[in-house]
Structures are given as structure tokens and as C-alpha cells.
Amino acid sequence: MKTKFSPANAVVKLCMKGMALEDSGNAEEAAEIFQQAWREATDDYERFIAAYHLARRQKSAEEKLKWMEMSLQCALKIDDENVKSAYPALYKNIAGCHKELGDLENAKRNDELAKSFEGPPTDTGPFYHGTKADLAVGDLLTAGGNSNYRDGLKMNHIYFAAGANGAGLAAALAAGEGRERVYLVEPTGEFENDPNVTDKKFPGNLTRSYRSKEPLRIIGEETEWTALTASELQKLREGSAKKTGEIIN
């Protein structure tokens, strides 16, 4: 079973709005938006995400622990390999709360649980890569291309995702004048969670974004995905241009 992460989900949209408010310095307003996300959550997946963000905004270790454990309990009910990618972050946060509260025994137990769930991704795809290049089945995509997010940066990995929409977004941001293309790909070697998104906005790797130093082989082309509108794409490009944080390469 795989639970589909969607930016169009109402609770995800609220959490994204809350994070944008945090980035602009409106912490109290962000907390209110996360509370709204919790109230509007309709299933364990939505509650897991909303509770995690509510936990982050709590001022006391006790309240943060309560909401982080709530997020974990919801995640544990889902029985989803993708959601399990969030377990290490949740257990680490819970361990941190226990340390702050002086409960070293529970801190150690939760740190050990976090480590027990760490490891390489087990996702079996299908996988997609977005670009403006005109390629054919059998071609290999290799590392060393230019970053879509930072001028002059050569990438040490080739990136891909388990969602066509995410690959479509990468295609929209890719350099070049050709039409946006989303290719079905298969990794030819080991791959890892993309550290630029894992545990950054959401716990774990809910967007199922990956990278590899080994080539990706094109096995087909996907023609069905949800493209951004021109205004959405412009906003995204403007937001990317403003970001000054490190890209983990």
C-alpha cells in the first residue's frame, strides 16, 4: 500500500500555507493555520501531517511531546512503506522532548527506535524524471547536469520521483526551450532519499523524491500529469530565486 502525497490535499495546502507564514516571521499566525489543519483533518494520514506541524510550534516540551506522539500514533495506523520514512524523524523528535524533560531512559529508547527504522529506500516505483530534453527509450540519464535551482551548480546525482506530477514540476523548471517531458525511468544502481526534501518540510520523504549517482534508464514516456498554471509556475520560480539555503549535492 502507498498513500499518495498530494499538494492539492486541503490539509497539505494548509500546512504549506503555515510554513510560508513561518518563513515570513508570522509564527503565531502559522500556529493558527496548523490548528485549522488539525481540525479539518479527516483521516489518519492528514492527522499525522497536521499533528507534526502543530508539535513544531509548541513552546513547551510537554506540549510538543504530546503532539509529536499524536503524529506518530496516526502514522503507525497507516501501514504504509512511504509513511514509514517519517518514523526516524518522529522518534528523534520524541527523544529530544524526553531529553528536555530529563527522562533519559525514554529518550534513549526512542533514539534506538529511530535508528531501527533508518536505511535505504524500499520504494519499487514506478519512477519518473522530468526534463525538456527529447530522449528515447533506452537512453541513459546521468549525473553532472546543471541544477534547476542554482545557477552554475553541477549536480553530483541524477534526480527522480515516484510521482509523475513531481517529475512534471521538475520538467517545468528545467532549462531549455523544448516541451516539458516526463519519462518513465528505472535506476541502474543504488539510490537514496533526496536529502534536499527529506525531513525538510514534511517528516520523512512523503513526496517520494530520490537521487542516484548511477544512471537512470528511460523505459517509456508519461503523457498524463497535472501541469502548473503559468501563474503558479511564475510564483514557484520567484520563490526559488529568493532561496539562499544550501543545496545538498
Rank of each mutant, 00 (worst) to 15 (best):
A107W: 03
L54R: 05
V197Q: 06
V182R: 00
E246W: 13
C97F: 03
P120W: 01
A162E: 03
Q35S: 12
D80I: 09
T122I: 08
T198H: 13
G145K: 09
A227Y: 04
N193V: 04
P88A: 12
A241M: 09
K213R: 15
S212Y: 03
A107K: 02
L72W: 09
Q36T: 14
M68W: 02
L233A: 06
I78W: 05
R179W: 01
A227C: 06
G138R: 02
K13C: 07
A162T: 03
T131I: 00
M16E: 14
A161P: 04
S147V: 02
R179D: 11
A107C: 12
V185P: 03
F160K: 00
N148R: 12
E28P: 00
N205T: 05
Q35N: 11
E22D: 11
T188D: 07
K77F: 10
N93S: 13
I33W: 07
L169T: 11
I218Y: 02
P195T: 02
I49A: 05
A170R: 09
D134G: 00
F191K: 04
A10L: 11
V197A: 04
F191N: 04
K64F: 02
S212K: 03
Q36C: 09
L14G: 06
N193Q: 08
K201L: 15
Y149K: 04
N205W: 04
G25Q: 05
Y128P: 00
E180I: 03
L54T: 00
A175H: 15
E22R: 09
R57Y: 01
G176S: 08
W67E: 00
S24K: 12
R217M: 11
L101Q: 13
D151N: 13
A227L: 01
R109H: 08
S60N: 09
A37G: 05
K2I: 14
